[in-house]
C-alpha cells in the first residue's frame, strides 16, 4: 500500500473536520498522485477557497494559499500565468467554486488556463451550517430551503465541457478511481475540473435520513457506476470527458 505521509503536516492532526468527513480522503488521494507523478514541494502550489474543504491547504507541506471565498480560481490563474512552470491545484467546495465563484469558473474555462480544479462536492455549504448550494438537489430540505430546494442543480459538466476542457467525476468512496482521474487531468494541458462527490453528514446527510458519514460512503458505493458513454456523464456515473 502506498503511503501518503510525505506531504502531510502530521503535527496539525487531528484536522478540524468532523469524524468521517470525505475531505481527508481527498487529501489522501491527492498526495498519493503527487508522490507517483513527481509533484512535490519544488514544483507544486495548492490554492483553496473558503469552506470546510478549503482548509486542505493548511494540512499539506506545500506552498499554499488560502484565498477569498469564491476566488480560488483567479488566484490560481495568477500563480500559473506568472509562473507557468508550477503545477497549480485548486481544492475547494461546491459552494465556493459554483456559487460565489461561478463567474470565475466560466472564464477560467474559457481561457483554458492550465490549472487542476478539484471540486469537493458535498452538495451543501458545510462550514456555515448546511445551507443549500448550487449543487443541492431539487426538493432537498436545508437550513435555507425549509420547504425543499426549488431549483435544479447547476450543470457544471456542461459549463466545463462547453470549452472542450477536461471534466471528470469521482467520489470519496472510489479512491482508486479518484486517483486515476487526478492522474488523467495531469495529462491534460489545459483547464481541468474534477468533481469529487463527498459526504457531509451533519450538514446534508442527516436531513436525508442517513445516520453517519459511513452510511453516506456506502451509499456512494451503491449509487455510482462507471460511465457508459464517452461523451456524457449521467448523474450517477463516474468517469471523464475530454
Amino acid at each position: 500500500m502506498q503511503g501518503y505521509l510525505s506531504l502531510l503536516k502530521i503535527k496539525r492532526l487531528p484536522t478540524t473536520w468532523c469524524p468521517g468527513c470525505g475531505n481527508g480522503l481527498v487529501i489522501k488521494a491527492l498526495i498519493q498522485v503527487m508522490e507517483s507523478n513527481n509533484l512535490n514541494k519544488k514544483n507544486t502550489v495548492i490554492v483553496s477557497g473558503i469552506g470546510c474543504v478549503g482548509r486542505t491547504t493548511g494540512y499539506l507541506k506545500l506552498d499554499s494559499i488560502h484565498t477569498l471565498h469564491g476566488r480560488a480560481i483567479p488566484v490560481a490563474e495568477g500563480i500559473k500565468t506568472a509562473n507557468p512552470k508550477l503545477n497549480v491545484f485548486v481544492v475547494s467546495g461546491d459552494g465556493d467554486l459554483l456559487a460565489i465563484g461561478g463567474n470565475h469558473l466560466l472564464h477560467a474555462s474559457r481561457r483554458k488556463t492550465n490549472i487542476k480544479v478539484i471540486c469537493v462536492n458535498n452538495r451543501i455549504y458545510g462550514m456555515t451550517g448546511g445551507q443549500a448550494s448550487p449543487a443541492t438537489p431539487k426538493k432537498t430540505v436545508t437550513t435555507t430551503t425549509p420547504k425543499g430546494n426549488e431549483f435544479e442543480e447547476i450543470n457544471t459538466q456542461a459549463i466545463v465541457t462547453s470549452n472542450k476542457n477536461f471534466f471528470a467525476r469521482s467520489t470519496v468512496f472510489h479512491l482508486d478511481h479518484l486517483k486515476k482521474m487526478i492522474k488523467k487531468s495531469l495529462e491534460n494541458k489545459d483547464f481541468s475540473f474534477i468533481e469529487v462527490i463527498s459526504n457531509c453528514y451533519p450538514g446534508y446527510g442527516k436531513k436525508l435520513g442517513f445516520t453517519s458519514n459511513y452510511e453516506m460512503l456506502m451509499d456512494f458505493k451503491k449509487k455510482f457506476e462507471n460511465q457508459k458513454n464517452k461523451s456524457i456523464l449521467k448523474k450517477n456515473e463516474l468517469g471523464f470527458l475530454k
Partner: peptide, 28 residues
C-alpha cells in the same frame, strides 16, 4: 450564508415564506 449571521438568513428563509414574501439565497 456567512457566520456569524447565518441565523438571520435562515430565519428569513423560513419566515418570509410563511408570510408569503420573497426570500432569495443569492449566489454571492
Amino acid at each position: 450564508p456567512i457566520t456569524p449571521q447565518n441565523e438571520l438568513t435562515e430565519y428569513m428563509a423560513k419566515h418570509m415564506r410563511l408570510n408569503k414574501r420573497p426570500f432569495v439565497q443569492a449566489e454571492s
